[in-house]
């Protein structure tokens, strides 16, 4: 079958079609969810195979580096065990106090559902991942997602039957109430494209120190509280501004996110009077 190259008869048609897709995109979301469900098994297989090949290759290529990391981790482990013993004794005291105060801490009853990351945002802007668990597994929009070490990753924004899309805390569309674990200084963590997230809107009167841990505030019941989000790398203040801003190094390793955990029994309680998220 022969064809002459070129031809622009349909060009305008495709341009108009593309803009129609954009304009009508809102109504295509049910199709989008079906596509997510249909492609999820294929993506899981491809991703699983790529993980296997990648692990083997990187193990082979980075053997020396892994040995060094192993030695460093052993030292770190010893230090952590020492700290753990101290913390356990503190936790014992803490538990007694909580019982005395009849304090119900939502974070201690969290039900985690592990899930595998099957694909990520193909546009390169890195704001989303998709996991292989969906509404069939009891997930709901807004549920909090942690990495395999329990560090904050993001929350579910789109749900299909067998998969769910997670908005990462790295995305500029993400805004999470957070606080400095040491000083209790409060602000909002907002993501940035191609850069570390920032802790913004912290009053200049509040104290922020480099290396302080930043955790979720848990205000408005959108996220469980005290989930580790990251660590302060630098703080910028200006005398004219009411607020200070801190650069945050995320605790979760977003470059190698393979397994995550969804907090299944923490369902966000949106103040219906003010916000209608759906």
């Amino acid at each position: 079958m022969v064809e002459t190259r070129g031809g622009r008869r349909f060009a305008v048609l495709f341009l108009v079609g593309a803009f129609l897709v954009l304009i009508l995109g809102r109504w295509i979301s049910p199709v989008d969810h079906v596509a997510m469900s249909v492609t999820a098994p294929f993506a899981a297989v491809i991703n699983g195979a790529a993980n296997g090949v990648g692990d083997t290759l990187s193990g082979f290529l980075n053997a020396g580096q892994i040995q060094g990391e192993n030695a460093a981790l052993k030292k770190q482990n010893a230090r952590l065990i020492e700290r753990l013993v101290k913390l356990q004794s503190q936790a014992h005291d803490d538990a007694q106090l909580r019982r005395m105060l009849n304090f119900e801490d939502g974070n201690s009853h969290m039900d985690y559902l592990p899930a595998r990351v099957i694909y990520s945002d193909p546009t390169g802007l890195g704001s989303y991942i998709v996991i292989n668990k969906g509404s069939r597994d009891g997930l709901r929009e807004g549920m909090t997602v942690l990495d395999q070490d329990g560090y904050f990753v993001g929350s579910i924004t789109d749900l299909a039957v067998t998969s769910a899309r997670i908005l990462l805390m790295l995305s500029p569309s993400s805004s999470v109430a957070a606080m400095d674990h040491n000083t209790q200084a409060q602000g909002l963590i907002e993501g940035r494209y191609a850069g570390s997230p920032e802790l913004k809107y912290v009053l200049t009167g509040s104290k922020l120190h480099v290396n302080d841990l930043i955790v979720t505030q848990g205000q408005a019941n959108l996220y469980p509280r005290n989930l580790v989000m990251g660590q302060v790398v630098s703080v910028s203040r200006s005398p004219q501004s009411v607020f200070q801003t801190a650069q945050i190094h995320p605790a979760a390793d977003f470059a190698h996110l393979e397994i995550v955990q969804v907090v299944r029994n923490w369902i966000p309680h949106y103040p219906a009077r003010l916000i209608n998220p759906h």
Partner: peptide
């Protein structure tokens, strides 16, 4: 690509 990304469809 739009099916896989979380940005506005289109």
């Amino acid at each position: 690509l739009d099916f896989y990304s979380g940005y506005p469809f289109g």
